[in-house]
Design a binder for these strands. Structure first.
Lengths: 261, 261
DNA sequence: GCTGATTGTATTATAATTTAATAGTTGATA
DNA sequence: TATCAACTATTAAATTATAATACAATCAGC
């Protein structure tokens, strides 16, 4: 009887495919293994639709199915897709060697982050000695306004444009000290514009300092950044400025000329 | 007129979804950016089908589209899927800290590899100082028989079963010295069964030695391994045995007890 | 070890969806 | 500017997916 919102009243839109993707997207860090009925709840699709779609995804090798529990899990194919992505993004190839070098130099996690809508996404990561599990994983997204990388990228945009983003992009209280005051964030970005880098404290993890330098395109605007995370205890402002900043800005600038418009 | 092979004459199989996935799988390390007609060639699907499916994948955020060239590329969503995978696979969490530690200790790339059909798949990697681009990327697949990790895993299986695999699994001449003689491979696995580890030379990259220790499940059989790659020049047998082996076997054994059946 | 509820699996008539063919549009190349 | 190739848009036809329902298996509580 078609009670669904007419997803896209368009003959060029394949609804079944979109629904199948919806099932894939139901899996995340808190939903790692889902039963048929879990999927029904999470996606809002009909039971029989989920049955057919999940079954198809299983037969096609996109979902593993535990024969005992009948629950579905992401398959190896999900990693093969990441592999294909890495080859498709030229920045990864350019940045990787530098990330590795810097990670050893600082003994810290060094990342390539890209702007992805109103979030930043970690595209390449080389972990330092210690760190949270989530901080080691590629594919993680964080609200752009709360990260050094996001602010560094925003700092390369025209003031009027970025003011809109600062007002409208989402914020999330990830730690007790995550800045929720947008005018403070705006200030922080203004400073980044002048200094050419951005620095944050306690925004996504307590006692963690983030430092990021933008990777600019030919027009001077950035959509990516080199970012590194260090312990606030061990790295006071002066040490960061002497031992990290020159190197990540050099790395970022070294990549910039190769970025296509 | 339906000239297609009846993919799966099954009401629980959604053909359009399967075709959509086929489009996603057309992207790989040599096909990083595809036009509509490229996709038609690569997938063998009808032009109008590709048009609708690719358009849907684009609207759903799975494919980026270059407005100038009209070509499709993998989107950030492909990395987010990897992120979900990492959380869904408990081995990743267990192995990561050890991989990091060992990578610093050996100054080499250290990997978690899993058996994926007749290939091994790199699930977590911590790169050493130098290395090929492909050797830094998660999601890479290699023929199991030609890798230390694959042989280490096979060495934990019953002899009669693994004999079948050694005979039937694919081989690919990746370097001039890739072993194509299956009886030599069988020997290498026999040795691994006795010694508890596997070691290879020049199999996927020249002048590169691979060393791997299996991660066993409760029944003693493995489907994963800790593997590390070092320069053949710098790491002669004795040094490997003294400075690497004890540590990767310990790491692998340390993970084993936590693996569920 | 039984009972009832919840979850997964299978089947079918209905009709909505995808399809394939084709025409129109854009853009690159010579 | 003309030609060709590639992308985009529009249709009528029918294959395909759908939703409802019945059946089977599994699990929890008693």
């Amino acid at each position: 009887m078609k009670s669904q919102v007419p997803e896209k009243q368009n003959t060029l839109f394949v609804g079944s495919l979109a629904k199948g993707l919806k099932i894939l997207r139901a899996f995340d860090e808190s939903a790692t293994e889902l039963s048929l009925s879990d999927l029904v709840k999470l996606t809002g699709l009909e039971k029989s639709a989920v049955q057919r779609l999940a079954n198809t995804l299983h037969l096609e090798g996109m979902l593993d199915k535990d024969p005992a529990t009948k629950r579905y899990r992401p398959s190896h194919a999900w990693l093969e897709m990441a592999y294909a992505y890495f080859w498709s993004n030229p920045l990864v190839r350019l940045a990787m060697p530098k990330l590795i070098e810097l990670s050893h130099q600082f003994n810290a996690t060094v990342n390539l982050a890209e702007l992805s809508g109103d979030h930043i996404l970690y595209v390449s990561r080389v972990p330092g000695r210690k760190g949270q599990f989530a901080s080691m994983l590629v594919g993680r997204r964080l609200p752009a306004l709360s990260t050094a990388a996001g602010r560094a990228i925003l700092s390369t945009m025209p003031k009027d444009q970025r003011d809109i983003f600062v007002e409208t992009w989402p914020l999330k209280q990830m730690t007790p000290r995550t800045t929720m005051d947008r005018s403070l964030i705006s200030q922080s970005i203004d400073e980044a514009q002048i200094s050419g880098y951005s620095m944050t404290h306690d925004q996504s993890i307590l006692q963690q300092t983030g430092i990021a330098a933008p990777i600019r395109g030919p027009n001077g605007q950035a959509f990516a950044a080199i970012q590194c995370s260090v312990s606030t205890h061990l790295w006071k402002l002066e040490r960061v400025q002497q031992e990290i900043l020159p190197y990540i800005t050099e790395a970022a600038n070294g990549i910039a000329p190769h970025v296509r418009g």
